[in-house]
Design a protein around this nucleic acid. Structure first.
Lengths: 351, 351
DNA sequence: TTGTAAGCGTTATCAA
DNA sequence: TTGATAACGCTTACAA
């Protein structure tokens, strides 16, 4: 066997192009050409070199290559909340597409924190990614200026800033909140609690707008106490409801008959709290989610929610990014995808 | 403003150490020293250089740095099924820890495919990751030989090969299946369907062993038809059950009274099929899961399952890996974590 | 068709 | 305390 050539147990030198060159008795440029299938290489020599490279278990140093040609076949994914199942489908489909074409992805989480986001962007820049897909903390921030100034290929998801030549793929949170609220009203709900995200987040602003728009549409009064800002997590949804009913008495429940949540995770928190308090969904309380994460159809009762096309966002986002990176398409793409209501069993028809 | 220095809109040259050197009127070594806080640098000069670097929005080229010192502060994570929510808790905690210490992670999925896994390993090697955490396709494969031969710092999760100086953190699937089956038997179930994974997977072998061990323990007959091999997905669990009851008649249901699933995703598939067919869980059929993924407590009925410490696995795995990378600890770590039964409402007590 | 050499952006060694 | 230089592994003019 050729294993004695291959043996790396002794602290031998790295197996690089130069090493292969020495073993094959050619120059490193010839090896490089052979390895890359450069037609300028003699077929016979190339085959011999290739064989030796294989025997030696050669693999290229992509840092060196990246340093030289300023391409790393690496994409950065910067998200805001890796804990949220919302993103899993998107990540999965992006990974599949990238894997197919020998790209890889660096994944990180900004946790809705501008400082962290900045750090992540700089890491991506430093590590030489060819582009990023980012769910930004906010649509107006120095971080976005940074991305632009550095000319980093970027596709925004979730929500996005607006400027010349921007690329984004997301749904309209305003529209989502609007159709959700419209549906609740159509079902006879007139007092709707909005479980919104932190007010400084763009997504919360948008969501609130849609909610207000719908109320206005139906000349319903806006009740301040019915708009709650909270973190976008299960735990927060749970706490928000528990806080409203500290006494475990459904005393003031007639204050509102439905809850609209910015995200299914909040809705699941509402389920949890309701169970503890003893509210029956949807009889005592109707719940409307947003995102349609996979598990919502298995909740009891199955959650009525607004479906966001997470897979499509991933597919389109990465396609746009790759087209741009590989120079196939330098156009700006602004894509707002449709959202749709998924009617299940968590909203009671009062009419 | 200093913005005219910073302007990068014209296709200017890269802002690198050399550039900063020129602007500051010192050599690149001095800049490098300043940037790295090397005490050999004059404090005053260093401060001036740092200020200029900041003004110029300098960020280091980590490819060059990595090429030079063979450290990239990048970790590879190679998993088998990014679609399975099981992994996200682990990923999340790893990401958090890495983010804290300015490491990043390259994430990829091998899909239980040895060829893909090999490709992923080579990518990691080529991209110069400092180490990997891998859920291997199999515990005996050329891929593992490759990892070893290349001396890549590795921690195995999920299951692991056994050799000198190996590192792993996982639970015993055999034990998990054993205590699950024991519990079912204790509840009075004597005929238990095993929804197992593909037979060539190590995890399936282990799981089967635990199941058989428990049956043997209680002198229960092994019924061949009660051991089903299937993909580890919701859809497969669904299909397996549907296939057993094509006529939608619970005719042969008395054939078994409980199903033990290798993974909660299979169990959810069983839920779905049962609902369609009209079986009531646990009255018509008891279901036992494995993993205790987050959503199982929200199923209806809440799923009785075996808890796997996914967060702990991530924490320990990355700690061991980092200790090794940074030379703090070169010992081999073989960690088998405990599993525990989470009793909820999907298993009927027949006794 | 092949080889030589320069350069990608860092850092460490050495000399000044 | 600083600067010149070589090296990390790769690719591509350019020359042979």
């Amino acid at each position: 066997m050729s294993s004695k050539n291959v043996d790396k147990t002794q602290k031998s030198e790295n197996i690089d192009i130069k090493y292969i060159a020495r073993v094959s008795g050619v120059s490193s440029s010839t090896v490089s050409r052979a390895l890359r299938g450069d037609p300028a290489a003699n077929k016979k020599t190339a085959d011999r070199v290739l064989k030796i490279a294989k025997e030696l278990n050669y693999y290229p140093n992509l840092l060196a290559k990246g340093l030289r040609d300023k391409k790393t076949k690496t994409i950065g994914i910067i998200l805001n909340d890796l804990k949220n199942p919302l993103y899993y489908e998107t990540i999965k489909v992006i990974e599949e597409i990238l894997n197919d074409i020998d790209y890889s992805m660096i994944l990180c989480d900004s946790n809705f924190d501008l400082r962290l986001e900045r750090k992540n962007i700089i890491t991506m820049l430093s590590k030489g990614v060819d582009g990023i897909i980012i769910s930004p903390v906010n649509i107006e921030s120095e971080n976005i200026d940074l991305i632009r100034k550095q000319g980093l290929n970027t596709v925004y998801i979730d929500f996005a800033p607006e400027f010349e030549n921007v690329n984004y793929v997301h749904v309209s949170h305003e529209h989502a909140a609007f159709i959700a609220t419209e549906y609740l009203i159509r079902c006879g709900h007139k007092k709707i609690l909005l479980l919104n995200g932190p007010s400084q987040l763009s997504v919360s602003e948008d969501f609130l707008k849609g909610y207000l728009q719908s109320l206005k549409n139906h000349k319903l009064k806006v009740i301040k106490q019915h708009i709650i800002s909270t973190e976008l997590s299960l735990e927060s949804g749970y706490k928000a409801i528990k806080k409203l009913f500290p006494s475990k008495e459904p005393g003031n429940l007639n204050d509102f008959t439905a809850v609209l949540c910015l995200g299914d995770m909040l809705a699941i928190g509402v389920y949890k709290a309701s169970k503890e308090i003893g509210f029956k969904i949807p009889d005592d309380l109707s719940v409307m989610g947003y995102d349609n994460i996979f598990m919502t159809s298995y909740l009891s009762p199955p959650l009525t929610t607004i479906h966001a096309p997470k897979i499509r966002i991933g597919e389109l986002g990465i396609k746009i990014l790759l087209d741009r990176i590989e120079g196939r398409d330098k156009e700006s793409h602004r894509i707002i995808l449709d959202v749709r209501l998924v009617e299940r069993e968590s909203v009671k028809k009062l009419t």
